[in-house]
Every structure is written in structure tokens, then in C-alpha cells.
Design a protein around this nucleic acid. Structure first.
Lengths: 363, 363
DNA sequence: TGCCCTGATGTTTGCGCTAACGCGATCGGC
DNA sequence: GCCGATCGCGTTAGCGCAAACATCAGGGCA
């Protein structure tokens, strides 16, 4: 007799004989059991300080007894806040995105947020807008976009202005806040390291042309070489995969002038190592190789790979932080008043292992 | 004057001078513009066939004009269905979980579902229950648990019975449906392959003892050896990491009797390869190695790794399918009437590369 | 003693949507 | 030409919760 709503399954009569489980308890039920009004129950949940300790205890124990769980949909409807953060990402199987996602998730968890993901089959304006839209339809409070892609950046320009959005690892010409690793600095360190070992110059095996991360690394590489007055060898590009590293590596291996290579990520470096090995060129005696990412397996490559470690977890944390600030503070407004949008950058770190060595007969 | 609700930000008067954006359109607005009732708008969204084509068109164009987006929270509240699927997973950074997650996500997307994830810091009864609880608080329609861990399995026994749950890769003594790779079959193939190359027996570098996947591989390995009347060497275990593979590999490398090793995953195989190399034992000439997972980099290891490919994407798809069946059909009533819960298994595949070869002087 | 103020609790209302039903109009069959 | 069966759409009534305002008790202070 309680409410007699047209709940489809399971009879609703309280003292019914068999009949399925007795519908989950709602706030009203708790209130009745505790002898208070529903509003007081709500207060116990949201502003416990405003409820007398004794009452609060009574309500809490009623909740326990009924195994009450607040209905999030109802709360969202009433408050306009969902406590859900959306993440749009390209292929979450890749090491970088996966780690970033994980970082975001951990940060979100400790702030009582939950995240929902929309991964993209391909990366372009359409798919990004589509991903954001899918999340928006779920009333997320904000969105983090992991899409370090040039063409993606365009899609970002026409985002819904009423939704806090933060981008991970994009270029710096955007109107949205960005959390990123300083790719340029990482590349600089890698190249400086190689030059300091006596190499005349450094080849670069870059990532796909329209990835902003790849661009940053190319820039850093070129800047150091030019700054030191070295030759800038022709650029080779792969697609991040070990396979592409192998293919380009065969080209490099055939050129005896090549003594130092900076690969834009670890899988490509791995492919490169194999190509060098097959060509009979020893690493690091004849050729030094530096990777980027420092995947957990890098220390076990043949030889153990010198690499630039990216603190993806940190980036994820920053990204979450940025969204949170926008959700809470700015009331959903885009950039903070005046000035360009926030940009949080973290520094990568060079980890030296055995794939780099002093150039034979240097100096 | 439309509704004059206490919306915090932005004045609500229609012809107000400055004042922020004009509140998102709701169903009533669309209805008004199209000259119909809100219910008809709702029908256009949910049962378009029941609306006259002409009316439907009018409504649709009104939606477009107002940039209307249905409010999911309200819909959830009214229907009890959220269209959200929860995924509880250990460290989504690991290759297996990441791929499975991705598979689930793709399957979900094509079914108009969205997924939210709760990753776990550690894996035990408490954390699993906690993860499920966190998701449940978000009114998910169902949950997939990626937790191939013995101790996890216990946590599964006392899941809320009113929530459709599917487990990925768990043991077979559960009361919930399972989607999994047939680990045993994969191990059998790996070991058979090695025996067929003339090796007297096969060592096994296993995963952590309480992982069900690890167990399955151990079982398959042991079964083949015993079935063929071979010696069963002592078992070595790692923790899935390349580092542990390296450490255990040093032990194996020191034993000249070892000519064939089956590693329980690729990173451990990688570490093992390094240990063998450092010990001066050549692969595959002196020692053959097989991995498990077939990560994308495996073909570029030194030497390219023979491995057992796990179709994680498939598993993800099956897992999603299983939940969906439970959400739609069973009305959330746990296992299907009679018989044990469903179990969907996919077969892994052996990919032969250059880390395995005929035993020197065999037969 | 009377007043206002504070703190604890209750009442009302509405968030945006959809299930269930109702009612008029159209339609085919005999 | 009448009747029941559609079809198309509107009306009503909640889903469970929280914001705003209302209420009521007690206590300090003049």
C-alpha cells in the first residue's frame, strides 16, 4: 500500500506471500523509520552538521537497516551536478592514453568523482565532437579530452561553451585549458645527452606528422641541433608502432653515418633496435639509441633502453584538477576571466640505460 | 516568466538585456515550438513509429532549432534504466585489462551504451565490493568485473543479487556468468609446440599464484607434460613484470638442463630473454622461449617472440553481450533459470616466431 | 517579562521525463 | 450506415531528491 506505483516486476503489496524483492528503500522509507521528514534524511547526507547529533544517528541507523542507497539520477535531476567526469580518448590501449586515463581515474576517485569514457575509433573533428556529445548526453560535469592530434585540435574550437573541457597534450594555440608533458624539453634532454656523448649529430625517428606530441619532439630535436650548429639530418617518421620503427630503422641501419638516433617513442625504438641488430650494427658501440615514454619494459630491451620518462599519471591528475576548478569555480564558464586559458605542464625525465654510449673515437 | 525556477546562474527572464545564456531547452520548450504536447516529443524520441510523420518532422525540426538534448538524469529517474555499464578493473594500464576494456567499450558504443570505470588500487574482496558499490551508486544497469584474481572470486559471491554482473577471466566455480580466454588451451598449445620441437621437457615461468589466468596456464602446462610422461620441472613464479621475468630468468639461465621455457606473459618473457642473453645462452639455438599475450611489440623482441595471442577484444565483446542479456531479458535476476551461469570462452592462438627452434641434436 | 535571534526540523515545490490511461478521429467490415 | 478497432495525441501522475521558505522551540539580553 505504500505507493502502489506501476513497478513492472514483482508484486508491490507489503505482506505479499512470495513475490520478488521489496523494492529498494527510498528516502521516504528511511525518514519514516527514523521518525523524521525526508528532508532531514537528505540533510544527513549533504550537510550533516546541520542535523542534531542524536537525530543524525537515528537516521544513519535507519539507512543501514534498510540498506538505503541514494538514487543518483534523482539527485542529479535536483541539483544539476552529476559527479561524473567524461574522458574522450583515442585508443585507450596505447601506453600513454592508458596511463593518463588511469591517472585521471585515481584523481577522480579521491574526489568522489566517477569517470565515464568514450573512446574514439579514429581521430578527427567529427569523432571528437561525437565523443563529447555522447558524454554530454550523460550529463557529465566536465570532459577531459586525450587527443594529442592536430586535426583534433580543430574540433576543439567549436566545443559547447557551457561544458568545462580540458585537453591533454594538445598544442598551445587553444582556447581551452591544457595539461601536458613538455615534449620539447624531453626531446632537448635526449638530444643533449647524445651530443654530450660525442656524437656529431642525431637522427630523429619521429611520430606521425599530425600528432602534437610528435611535433614537440621534432621541435626540441631541431632546436638543439641548430643551436649547437650541427647538421640537421633528414627527418624520418613512423606511426608509433614497433613495426614502423623497424622499417625506418632499416633505412637508418644502412647508413654508416648514423651514430645516434632519437626515437619518438619506445616501441619505435624497439623496432629500430631490431633493425640495427639485423644489420649487424651494434648498440650502443656503433649506434646509440634513445626512446621516449620509458615504458615499464624498456629496461629489458636489448640493450636496455635509454628513454625519456613521461609522467602520465601526473598529467592525468592535473587534467582532472583543471576540470574540477572549472566545474566548481567558474560555474562552467570557459577560460578564466582575462588571459589565456590555464596550461599545466610537467617535465619529463631522461633515464639513462645501456643503449647509449660514447661515440667510438669521439673527440 | 517561463518557469522562473531558482536556477542559480544567469537571469531567467526571456528578454533580459545582458544576462548569460538562456537555459538549455527542455522537452516542454520543444513541444511548445512544435505545437504539440511534451508527451509527443517524448514519443518522437522513444517510439517514433507511433507519431504521425508530419508531426514527427515538426518536432524534430523544433529540436534542431532549440538544440535540444534530452536530460538523461530525468530519463533514468522515470524509466529506471540508465544505459550505463560499469566496469570494475584492476590497473587498466596492463595490456590485458586495457584491451578488454577497449573491447567492452566498442561493443557498448554500438549498442548505445556508455561505460564508466572504477579501477582498483589493489585486488581483494573489499576493493571489489567497493568498486561495485561505487558504480552502483551511479545507477549503472550492469557491471563487468575484470579481476582475474582468486581472492577476488570470493568477493564475487556476495554481490548484490539485483544487479547483473559478469566477470571476465575468473575461475569456473562462480555463481556469475563469465567471459574468458581458455588459458588452459593456450598453455597446451605452447607446451605442445615446444615438445614437438624435440625438447625433453618445458620449464614454466608462471604468473602470481593467486591469479586465475596464471593458474590456468600452469594447469595446461602440467597436464601436457604429465600426459606425455615427461618430467615436470619445478615451477617458477613472477609477478607479470619484465623485472620478475629477468630475475627468475637468471636462475633458469644458470641451469644447462633448461632448453625450453614457457613464460606466462610477454613482459616476463622479455625479461627472461635478457637474462638468457646476459648469461650467454642463445635463443633459440640453445633455449626456446614462448610467451603469452602476444603484445604488439612481441615481433620486435630479440629475438621475435613466439607467443600465444589472447583475443581480448573478443572477450570484452562477450562480456558486454552477457551483461546485456541479463539487463534486458532476465530483468536483473542473476543466473538464468536452472543450470550453471553462462560461460563464454574464446580460444587463444599460437603465433610462432623466432624464439623457438628445434632442440639442438634432438631425436 | 517580552523580544529577537539562532538552530533544528517540516512543507512545498519543481528538476525533466515517461508510463498509463483517456479521448476523439479515422477506418474497414458487413 | 452503424460498430468496434485502430491510430494519434493529450492529460495526469509520479520517479527520488534537494532548494527555498516556513515553522517552532529554546535562550540570551534588555
Amino acid at each position: 500500500m505504500t505507493t502502489a506505483t506501476p513497478q513492472p516486476q514483482a508484486g508491490a503489496e507489503p505482506p505479499g506471500p512470495g513475490a520478488g524483492r521489496p523494492r529498494a528503500a527510498v528516502m521516504e522509507d528511511v525518514a519514516a523509520l527514523a521518525g523524521v521528514s525526508a528532508m532531514t534524511v537528505s540533510r544527513v547526507l549533504n550537510t550533516p552538521a546541520k542535523v542534531a547529533p542524536k537525530t543524525r544517528e537515528r537516521v544513519l541507523s535507519a539507512m543501514r537497516e534498510l540498506d538505503y542507497r541514494p538514487n543518483s539520477a534523482a539527485r542529479v535531476l535536483a541539483t544539476g551536478r552529476s559527479g561524473v567526469l567524461g574522458v574522450v580518448s583515442l585508443d585507450t590501449t596505447l601506453y600513454g592514453p592508458a596511463c593518463t586515463l588511469y591517472g585521471i581515474e585515481r584523481a577522480a576517485r579521491s574526489a568522489e568523482y566517477v569517470i565515464t569514457i568514450a573512446s574514439l575509433g579514429e581521430l578527427n573533428r567529427r569523432s571528437i565532437e561525437d565523443g563529447v556529445e555522447r558524454l554530454r548526453a550523460q550529463s557529465v560535469d566536465g570532459v577531459v579530452i586525450i587527443a594529442p592530434h592536430r586535426s583534433a585540435a580543430e574540433g576543439l574550437r567549436r566545443l559547447p561553451p557551457d561544458l568545462p573541457v580540458v585537453v591533454v597534450g594538445a598544442g598551445d594555440d587553444l582556447t581551452v585549458p591544457v595539461a601536458a608533458v613538455d615534449q620539447r624539453a624531453g626531446a632537448v634532454r635526449a638530444v643533449r645527452h647524445l651530443l654530450s656523448l660525442g656524437h656529431e649529430t642525431v637522427w630523429h625517428l619521429a611520430g606521425p606528422a599530425d600528432w602534437v606530441d610528435a611535433d614537440g619532439r621534432v621541435e626540441g630535436w631541431r632546436a638543439v641541433l641548430e643551436g649547437e650548429g650541427r647538421d640537421v639530418p633528414p627527418l624520418l617518421s613512423g606511426d608509433w608502432s614497433a613495426r614502423s620503427g623497424y622499417e625506418q630503422g632499416r633505412v637508418l641501419a644502412a647508413d654508416p653515418a648514423v651514430t645516434a638516433v632519437f626515437a619518438a617513442n619506445d616501441p619505435m625504438a624497439l623496432g629500430l633496435l631490431r633493425a640495427l641488430r639485423e644489420a649487424g650494427r651494434r648498440v650502443p658501440e656503433e649506434v646509440s639509441v634513445v626512446g621516449f615514454d620509458d615504458v615499464p619494459e624498456a629496461p629489458y630491451f636489448a640493450p636496455p633502453l635509454t628513454s625519456v620518462r613521461q609522467p602520465f599519471g601526473e598529467v592525468g591528475r592535473h587534467a582532472f584538477q583543471l576540470v574540477l576548478e572549472r566545474v566548481g569555480g567558474g560555474g562552467g564558464g570557459g577560460a578564466p576571466p582575462g588571459g589565456p586559458p590555464a596550461r599545466r605542464t610537467v617535465e619529463p625525465e631522461l633515464v639513462v640505460r645501456e643503449s647509449t654510449a660514447v661515440r667510438r673515437g669521439a673527440r
